[in-house]
Design a protein around this nucleic acid. Structure first.
Lengths: 159, 159
DNA sequence: TATTGTTATACTCTATAACTATA
DNA sequence: TATAGTTATAGAGTATAACAATA
């Protein structure tokens, strides 16, 4: 394991127990968020993976499938199937890159832009945080930013 | 949609934008946690779903598969395959309940207890929170507890 | 030879429906 | 008739390996 922050029991009071509790709770929250997001994604006629692929595409900066695969952290072969779905739905177009005919540039269509905006709304749906006060929300945001990359919410860009 | 906390752009400064940022960041963190946990789960010779099933079983209180399915939030048919794996690995035993011969009680073996303890360590692995100070960690923990069920970390039990 | 996209294939996870044996 | 477990099947997600076209 080679990592000290591990404990078997509840162990409340020491840092390991606190951190372990927090990690499990974060996973629990994420699963809940995913659950209702997936319902809304399905209502858009997309699978979660296809929605994420569309969301990852920048309508103003088309890119080859290889780069999308890298952004999604998956194999190129999966991008083929994902883009198949998006293209069939008229949300994305494949265009052979004249400069390198091996590559196909992925272009978000006008319809794709609209659906992508809806996807962005869905993945930003924050109903689970409604119970937090304004200061608590700001506090939570700073903490999760620090956890995810040690950056600062005010200056850094998005995901 | 029927929910007001939605925004399309970055919109930093208003509550919707803050909350959306936070939600996406939480999902990002959860994905990172899952990623390294899955690696360690695989090192135990288990799939993530099988590990979760084993973790959900209480070695001191055997229960029928139906209850495990409910705890996992999945269909009974999946439990069959999951327990197949766990039983084949010698971690769990199926025993026909004499009181109701339709039911099969799931009993964690001694080997199962040991692996389950390791699984608990893995799902509590908090390396991602190492960058937080002690007070920040306590702060984060209170906030995620409030989000996940409005409860209080000091009094309530585990997941 | 190396790379892009594709295809074929396989495994995991999950769901539904139908079956069996009990109750 | 209803329930517990199982089986068969299907779809989604992801991975590897091999292939064609291109560089």
């Amino acid at each position: 394991m080679a990592h000290p922050n591990l404990s078997t029991g509840p162990d409340r009071g020491d840092r390991s127990g606190l951190a372990g509790d927090t990690v499990r709770r974060i996973l629990h929250i994420a699963a809940a968020i995913r659950h209702y997001q997936d319902v809304e994604i399905a209502a858009l006629g997309l699978t979660p993976a296809a929605a994420r692929a569309l969301h990852e595409l920048d309508p103003d900066r088309p890119l080859p499938g290889r780069d999308l695969a890298e952004q999604l952290g998956c194999d190129r072969s999966n991008v083929t199937a994902l883009v198949d779905k998006l293209e069939q739905a008229g949300l994305v177009e494949r265009r052979v890159d004249p400069a390198d005919r091996r590559q196909k540039t992925l272009v978000v269509t006008d319809a794709g832009r609209r659906v992508r905006d809806r996807v962005h709304q869905v993945v930003s749906d924050s109903r689970l945080l409604d119970g937090l006060g304004t200061d608590e929300l700001a506090n939570l945001r700073e903490l999760v930013w620090k956890v995810s990359d040690g950056g600062c919410p005010e200056q850094c860009g998005e995901d």
